[in-house]
Write a protein that binds this DNA or RNA. Sequence first.
DNA 1: GTAGGGTTAG
Length: 602
Amino acid sequence: MNSQELWVQAYGRLKSCKSISTTQLKQLHAFIIKTRPLPLPTQHLMYPKLTSSTEKNFTHILSFLNHLEKPDLCLSLYNAIIQGLPSNPNNKASSLRQVLELLKHMLVNGLLPDNYTVPSVLKACAQSRALREGQQMHTYAIKTGLVLSNVYVKNTLMRLYAVCGVINCVRNLFDEGPQRDLVSWTTLIQGYVKMGLPREGVEAFFDMCDAKMMADEMTLVIVLSACSKLGDLNLGRKINEYIYANGVYRDVFIGNALVDMYLKGGDADFAYKVFNEMPVRNVVSWNSMISGLAHQGKFKEALDVFREMQRIGLEPDDVTLVGVLNSCANLGVLELGEWVHAYVDRNRIEADGFIGNALVDMYAKCGSIDQAFRVFQGMKRRDVYSYTAMIVGLAMHGEVEMALDIFAEMPRMGIEPDEVTFIGVLAACSHGGLVAEGHKYFRDMSSVYRLRPQTEHYGCMVDLLGRAGLINEAEEFVKNMPIEPDAFVWGALLGACRIHGKVELAESVMKKLLKVEPERDGAYVLMSNIYSSANRWKDAVKLRRVMKGKNMKKIPGCSSIELDGVVHEFKKGDKSHKRSKDIYKLLDEIMSHVKNHELLAH
DNA sequence: GTAGGGTTAG
């Protein structure tokens, strides 16, 4: 066989194979060196097929290129290779490096990027959030006029700035030039939503409708996620109507986005309905249900959905497990939480990031503070969420000193605390009666960390002062607040009044509390307890009567235990359980034991 | 031949 015939044979084989192994690559490499020049169609078949992005293969690609000469070394060949380079999600930096290496190679060989090269390079930049490199491409695209003449260039540039969080540049690119298509609109909307500006995203969608541009599934998925983030059920319903009215295909992405939107908007029943009617479901569909229900405080339902998922044999992923752990944490279901931990270990899932943080939180909330600490210490990478979960957990368990030690460790690890971290820190001070320290941390919040204290932080301080017996100081603290006190603050002050039997102050605080939160029964309950403690039974009864007449939203005290995989929920005064008589009998026994114990202790 | 999609924490 002469070399021409061999190439024909190689061409046929390449055409039918999907990818190419390193060994085959090496053989072809040797072959090329021996039988140059290489027929062009063969190259164009071969290079995009190099789909295993090992460093080794990339070295081969480069050495291929080094053996080629013009006219084999042409722009379309480079474009095919750059585009064919698989993005390696585990090593984005390496993928970008390879793309830039190829770019350099083509420049050295006197070839300039065209309207196909620029988008693929920009895509790689966006994937690695390489703003600098992307900006260089932007400059080039301006000089060559590609930004204005080619919508792919414009859109990939917009995407680059969107993922890098430079929303102004996204908007400017969108506004300049006559070229804009559905992808431009979608990228603009996505840019806003990803920046945490869902309102602006929705507005851009309305602008798009005004511009008579029709949305497709991809656009609507993003718009739905914006509605979900806004918790705007009415808007979400309108989008669903749009989907119906325009006959948009309800693919699994749309279905998942709808499920998420309905749950975050508070319509769990409709979310179930959408979920049940979906012709195709994937793990994200289940995750949307589980985390959405957990988000709504329907933890038991979330676990029921998880059990159903297990029953049909669908493998959970890490998002599933985070939702399950979150539900366990809030129900205090340690047993299932431990099962998830074992599952994570068994499947060699890294107990870092979301999973690690959720485990720390779950153990802490389930009372296993030692286990929480063990997971925390075992984490390779800890972030502000890990630290906060640990600090809040320790504070809840009264491990004041340790909570503050962990907090002190944060700057050494280069991790900035945020608002929630300080809730834990102040709660720790409150439990430890550390008034001076509490004041200091509260001041540090704004002076050192540039965080603006919110009503929750003021509430913590009021709680701290109240528990320490400084009721006047607590009252003074509320008076001097630069922001409007809300239910959290008034509630804390009312709690302080309860401890110190300050009936008159309590009465005025209750009025304030009812003003900001008229629908809840908490203020009445607390106040009637204050009356009772002060032996003012008549007032207490009167208050209870007012409550009954007002049809208040009752938020009953609730607890749950898990027994043999079944979660039993108990509400205050609840008699719905099959064995409720036995339960109350046992409860009475326990209470009398406790009381005896208390008497002995005094 | 190219570009845009859903779910996760304290």
